[in-house]
């Protein structure tokens, strides 16, 4: 379970609040979509909940563990897919998986089994001996997803996970998300692809200019807006409304 409460963050080099008093909770067994335009504060929020950034105010709790108070224990319960797969280009894929596995304390048998399972699913099994630098963007993304699942985390946090994935891999990823939620684990992902959010999310939050403008189910969103359009049109309406209010 992921609980964000009153998260506020202003970057040192900026006068504007990147995230302003943001509260969200993601229950076990649910897929939660975090939607918003570019620069809305999605990645900053994810960085706060994964312990990458220290918020100015508010708290992040993972399965009841405060990220600020006990970061190591909280981070052990998260599998994180960053929005930047251009990492560790000089390492080989297997070396990267071993690094992540060692840091999360995954046994040899588990890491072999999970690597084999997910690498097969994403079609990168035959490339595990190659350097990450030789991978395409999509292959790097698949490797990050595989690595994030090595320790079978209770909470899976994905920042724009569909970017760069081919249709087959995107389908596989959605299947894994559903399977994990069905197994009682929490899935939290950010996206600005409305179709994905519409089909995948049990609940969603829409963030704009650092503030939550909606949290709930798609049905609740439709009811609130009094319209029966697609998520895309509802999203655009909501984001435009909040922009006008703040202006």
């Amino acid at each position: 379970m992921i609980e964000l409460s009153g998260i506020t963050k202003t970057y040192a080099k900026s006068a504007v609040k990147a995230v302003d008093d943001l509260s969200v909770s993601v229950r076990d067994g649910e897929i939660f979509g975090f939607l918003g335009p570019n620069g809305a504060g999605k990645t900053t929020t994810i960085k706060a909940l994964t312990g990458v950034l220290r918020p100015d105010a508010g708290s992040a709790r993972i399965d009841g563990i405060d990220v600020a108070a006990d970061p190591i224990a909280a981070k052990r319960r998260i599998g994180y897919v960053t929005d930047n797969p251009e990492l560790f280009a000089r390492l080989k894929a297997a070396e990267y998986l071993n690094f992540v596995g060692d840091v999360y304390g995954v046994s040899s048998a588990d890491r072999r089994a999970r690597t084999s399972e997910y690498a097969t699913l994403f079609g990168i099994k035959d490339a595990l001996g190659a350097s990450i630098g030789s991978f395409s963007y999509g292959m790097k993304q698949k490797l990050l997803v595989t690595a994030s699942l090595l320790h079978d985390p209770q909470n899976w946090v994905l920042d724009e996970p569909m970017v760069g994935l081919d249709p087959k891999a995107a389908f596989a990823l959605k299947e894994i998300m559903r399977a994990r939620a069905a197994a009682g684990k929490a899935v939290f992902f950010s996206t600005h692809v409305m179709e994905v959010a519409e089909k995948m999310c049990d609940r969603l939050a829409i963030v704009n200019k650092g503030r939550i403008v909606f949290t709930g189910t798609l049905a609740e969103l439709k009811a609130m807006q009094g319209a029966d359009g697609s998520l895309e049109s509802l999203f655009l309406e909501l984001v435009d409304d909040s922009a006008e209010e703040s202006a």
Binding site: G105, S116, D126, L128, A130, S134
Partner: peptide, 24 residues
């Protein structure tokens, strides 16, 4: 970039051989 790919059997053997636990 050219990726040197492993065969199907080779990949399994590779995983068994190369993925192993060490201290952090």
């Amino acid at each position: 970039a050219h990726i040197r790919k492993l065969s199907k059997d080779g990949a399994e053997a590779f995983i068994a051989r190369r993925l192993r636990r060490r201290r952090p």
